[in-house]
Design a protein around this nucleic acid. Structure first.
Lengths: 115, 115
DNA sequence: ATAATATACATCAGTTTCTTATGTATATAA
DNA sequence: TTATATACATAAGAAACTGATGTATATTAT
């Protein structure tokens, strides 16, 4: 996934945040949305995405709904109540991570956050 | 390491950046510096740190120098020429990561970067 | 005195998460 | 009719971590 080591811990955060904004998305749609939003810089591979979606579902953060579209099966994912809580938690973790990296990289800088 | 999934891809960046600022550090010192800079939020475990240092040395990014201090052995690490180049590269990756996450999380926001 | 904590290195089994490849199937564009 | 796009899924192997364990000295607390 983009060969950037940082990106490798962010897949769950990305999935949950996109589902917060979109109500309902299917796997392939998520890969395309991320590619679009990041101008192709982050590419989510299927081998990473589908296991991640299955895991979030197994943890009760996502629910699924199969739809038939033009003789093709789509599996739509949505946030559960627990999933919605988890979004805030993941975003807080992301913000904390960025702040901590700023402290390490810019020592002696008053924090003025960006995320 | 801090139970935050994002932190898990950032250890090399942290090590290299600290060595850019400090010329010469030993393992235990790195764990303490990170704890201090992040107010205890990021804790680097020995099981993560030492293998990471050995790998960076094997890749030619760090050199070592043993010193005896009060009957105790310290292994000091410094950046090689390649290591210095790698610092910029890792920081650029971090910045790109943060920008891309902002695009995903704040869609429709003009970027005004922070790192 | 002595037990606990701090300093300082290191390894290793097990877990998680990723990459890359493979597989199935339909639809569309070249 | 071949390649690309859409759409799902799995699986072997790699990489980076956790948490435990091990060794050894120094200092602080009881």
């Amino acid at each position: 996934m983009s060969s950037n080591a940082l990106v490798k811990g962010s897949l769950q955060t990305i999935i949950l945040k996109l589902l917060e904004e979109n109500e309902k998305m299917y796997g392939y749609e998520i890969t395309q949305k991320v590619k679009e939003l990041t101008a192709g810089e982050i590419k989510i591979t299927e081998g990473a995405l589908y296991p991640a979606l299955h895991k979030l579902e197994a943890e009760g953060l996502l629910t699924t709904e199969i739809q038939q579209v033009d003789n093709r099966v789509r599996k739509y994912y949505s946030l559960t109540k627990d999933g919605k809580k988890e979004v805030s938690s993941k975003l807080a973790e992301l913000q904390a991570f960025v702040e901590n990296m700023q402290r390490i990289i810019n020592p002696g800088l008053k924090p003025e956050f960006s995320l």
